[in-house]
């Protein structure tokens, strides 16, 4: 029972590096709204790497699923590097596994639409005119390093 609880929480998998466990969903998912607020969310790359040196979070907006990766440190993260290179990641959400295509978003027009809901849900903040501006002149180089990915079903 203890092992089951640890596996469910991802603690054991994280500790021993074992693959994510759960039922693999083979049907494409078009609406990810069910993932909003899910606490049991974990990721691994096709190579089995986990995000260890960066913070990861998910966000659902308009039925689309986003992966947000951030860090204040300069250290490299193997899972992030692999995700950037391969554009693929596996997620466990509410006990089920999903193979996903991870498309990096870098343009403001792709990121701006979900910023208001992101700020509301993660920072408790209502905002107007939110826009992605990662290199502002007034604050040169003070930003956390952040990567945004759009996650879409990619059943193999």
């Amino acid at each position: 029972m203890i092992r089951g609880a640890l596996v469910a929480l991802g603690v054991l998998a994280l500790a021993c590096g074992s693959p994510l466990e759960g039922e693999l969903v083979s049907e494409p998912v078009r609406d990810w709204s069910f993932a909003r607020g899910a606490e049991d969310v974990a990721f691994e790359t096709p190579g089995g790497a986990r995000f260890r040196r960066v913070l990861v979070d998910t966000h659902v907006h308009g039925g689309k699923l986003y992966l947000l990766v951030s860090t204040i440190f300069s250290a490299e993260d193997a899972a992030l590097n692999e995700t950037l290179a391969s554009g693929r990641v596996r997620a466990r959400i509410a006990g089920k596994l999903y193979d996903l295509r991870a498309t990096r978003l870098e343009r403001a027009e792709d990121i701006d639409p979900f910023l208001p809901s992101l700020l509301r849900e993660t920072m408790g903040m209502e905002s107007e005119g939110a826009r992605w501006d990662p290199l502002p002149d007034r604050y040169p180089g003070t930003q956390m390093r952040r990567w945004f990915f759009l996650l879409e079903s990619d059943p193999r």
């Binding site: 910023l115 700020l119 905002s127 107007e128 005119g129 939110a130 826009r131 992605w132 501006d133 990662p134 290199l135 502002p136 007034r138 604050y139 003070t142 930003q143 956390m144 952040r146």
Partner: peptide, 8 residues
């Protein structure tokens, strides 16, 4: 703006 790179 300073820490998250989000202007509002």
């Amino acid at each position: 703006h300073k820490y998250l790179g989000i202007a509002v």
